[in-house]
């Protein structure tokens, strides 16, 4: 298996997918866009060997954990979907930063 970043990015994408199905309109569209972005990032993470000790990597894992913990195993509508979108989007930003940093190293 590949490293934690790839697994957690794919895991969050799956959770965001569950939310996108159960929400509507802008919330659903935003979640689908984040899901596509997370899927692309997990593919990028799969093809790279990353330094798990790097600060950017650790921040990305924390961001992914925060989003995963908040969304949990929700498979229906949740009260604060705006916060879920914010956390998932932030996690995607951090994962992208970790991958960009690794590419420059």
């Amino acid at each position: 298996m590949s490293h934690e970043l790839a697994e957690k990015t794919a895991g969050l994408a799956s959770r965001v997918s569950n939310l996108a199905i159960t929400h509507t309109d802008d919330d659903s569209r935003n979640l689908l866009e984040i899901q596509d972005r997370l899927a692309d990032l997990s593919l990028a993470a799969i093809v790279r060997d990353l330094d798990e000790e790097a600060v950017a990597y650790q921040k990305a894992i924390k961001g992914l954990n925060d989003a995963i913990d908040f969304i949990g195993e929700a498979d229906g509508q949740i009260a604060n979907v705006a916060k879920a979108i914010t956390l998932a989007s932030k996690a995607a930003d951090l994962a992208e930063k970790a991958l960009t940093s690794a590419a420059k190293a």
Partner: peptide
């Protein structure tokens, strides 16, 4: 091969989600 298998799971998952939509 494991990496390619993981990637194909992601491709297929997204293709199915978009197809259902």
């Amino acid at each position: 091969n494991l990496r390619i298998t993981e990637a194909s799971d992601i491709w297929l998952g997204r293709i199915i989600d978009h197809a259902n939509a």
